[in-house]
Computed example of a mutant assay.
Amino acid sequence: MKYQVGDDIIVLHSNEEGKVIELINDKMVMIEVRGVKFPAYMDQIDFPYFYRFTKKKQEPEKKVAPKQYIDQVPKEKPKPNQIQVADGVWLSFIPKFALDDFNDEVVELLKVHLVNKTPDTYQFTYKQFFLHDLDFELVNQVQGFHDFYLHDIDFEKVNDSPSFSVDFSLLQPKKGKAAHYEAQLKLKPKQIFQKIEALKENNEPTFSYQLFKEYPEKDSSEDYVDLSKLSNKGYKIYDASKVRQHLPPARSVIDLHIEKLTDTYDHLSNIEIIGIQLAEFEKWFDLAIAHRQPSLIVIHGVGKGRLREEIHDILKTKREVKHFINQYDPRFGYGATEVFFQY
C-alpha cells in the first residue's frame, strides 16, 4: 500500500494539502483537507514533498503600479527567434489542449506557424487543403529569424488529411537563387496523432516539419538561351505560342492495367508494376494539361486499391486538378477515376 494513515498528501487537482485518515481499499483512501473529510482515488493524490520543494517562496507585496491607459501601451512587435542559427524554414504546429466532460485532456485545435530560421525575408503564398478542397489561403511576408502565425485548424478536421502548400520567393532577389520555390506537406491523421502522443510524453510544446533547409539555387533551365544560334546550326525551332501543335496527341481515357502497358510483366514485383503504372499515368496526365483538356479518365481497376490510392494521393497535390471522383460507371464499374482540370 502506497499510503498509510497519517501520511501527508496533496490533492493534485487543487494543490491543497491534507492527511490520510482511513484506508478504504487498494484504490481509495479517506482524506481530510482543511477539516473536510472525503474519499479520493490514489491517482488523484500524491505526497506533497516535490510540490513544497518546487513551490516558489512568496514574494513581498509590491507597490501597485500607476494606472496605464491603452494609448500609453507600446505596440507589440514580432519577436525574432532567440537563437539565430540558420536551419531552414519550418511549418510548426502547437496543439491547444482542454479538458472534456470526463476531465480528460483533449486537443481542441492546432495553431499553425511558419518558422523562418534563416537570415532572409521571404514573400510567401500559403494554402491549406482538406482532401482536395482549399480551406485557407494567405499571402504575406516572414522576416529572417522570425515566426509567423498563420491560422488555427479545428482538430476534428484532422481526419480529412490536411495538406499544405507554401510558395516562397526572396523579398530581395539574389543572384544565382531561384525566382520562387514551392514546398508541399501532406499529413495523415495517424501521423498527427502519433506526433501529439510523442509531444506529450516528451513534454514538448510543438511538432514541426522542415519545408526546406536552404533556399534553392536557380535552375540552369531558367537561363536565357539565344535560339537564333541554334536555328543557324540547323536545329528546328518552334514558336512557343504553337507548342501544342508539336506535342504528342493526348488521350481522354487511359488504361493502366499492366497487361496493357507491357507484354513481359510475369517476372516483375508488385513495386515494379506500380512504378510502371504510375510513370504511365504521369505521362498522360502531363500531356492532358499541356493540351488543356477539361478532364481525364484513369482506369486503375479495383483489386486491393493500392494503385487507386497512389493516384489519388498524387492528384491531391496537383494545383491543376479542380476535383476528381471515383464512382460507379457502367463502362468501368468502380475501377476508374475521372479527373477535372482548372486552368
Rank of each mutant, 00 (worst) to 15 (best):
Y265Q: 15
S295M: 11
N203T: 05
A279Q: 06
Q245G: 06
K213C: 12
P294W: 15
Q277P: 00
R306N: 12
A279E: 13
R306L: 09
E309A: 13
N232D: 12
I258P: 00
Y215F: 03
L296K: 08
P205Q: 10
R251V: 10
S231I: 03
P294S: 15
G234Q: 11
F285S: 02
L247R: 10
K304E: 09
S208G: 00
N202G: 03
I273G: 05
F207D: 02
F285A: 01
K218V: 03
K229N: 02
L296Q: 10
L227R: 03
Q210S: 00
A290N: 08
G303K: 04
F212N: 00
L278S: 08
K236A: 13
Q210K: 02
E272Y: 13
S220E: 07
K213H: 14
N232C: 11
F212D: 00
V302P: 06
K218E: 05
D226V: 15
V302E: 04
N203A: 10
E272I: 06
D286G: 09
Q277N: 07
D239P: 10
L227W: 12
K242E: 13
I237T: 08
G301A: 14
Y215A: 01
L268M: 05
T264M: 15
E214A: 01
T206N: 03
T206G: 00
L307I: 14
K304D: 07
R306G: 04
K242D: 04
R251F: 07
Y209V: 00
S252D: 14
P249G: 09
K283E: 12
S269I: 01
I289T: 10
D286P: 02
D255T: 11
N232P: 06
S295V: 10
K218C: 14
F207N: 02
I237E: 06
R244H: 05
E272P: 04
R306A: 09
K304Y: 03
D239H: 11
G275E: 15
L261M: 13
K283F: 15
K304C: 07
S228E: 04
N202P: 01
S231M: 05
I271S: 12
R251M: 15
E204M: 11
I258G: 06
Y224Q: 06
T262V: 07
L307G: 01
E222R: 12
Y215L: 03
Y265I: 05
N232H: 05
I271D: 12
T206E: 03
P248L: 09
L261W: 12
L307E: 09
D219H: 05
G301S: 08
E214D: 10
E222K: 09
R292E: 02
Q210W: 01
F285R: 11
I289W: 14
S208I: 01
V302C: 08
E259L: 04
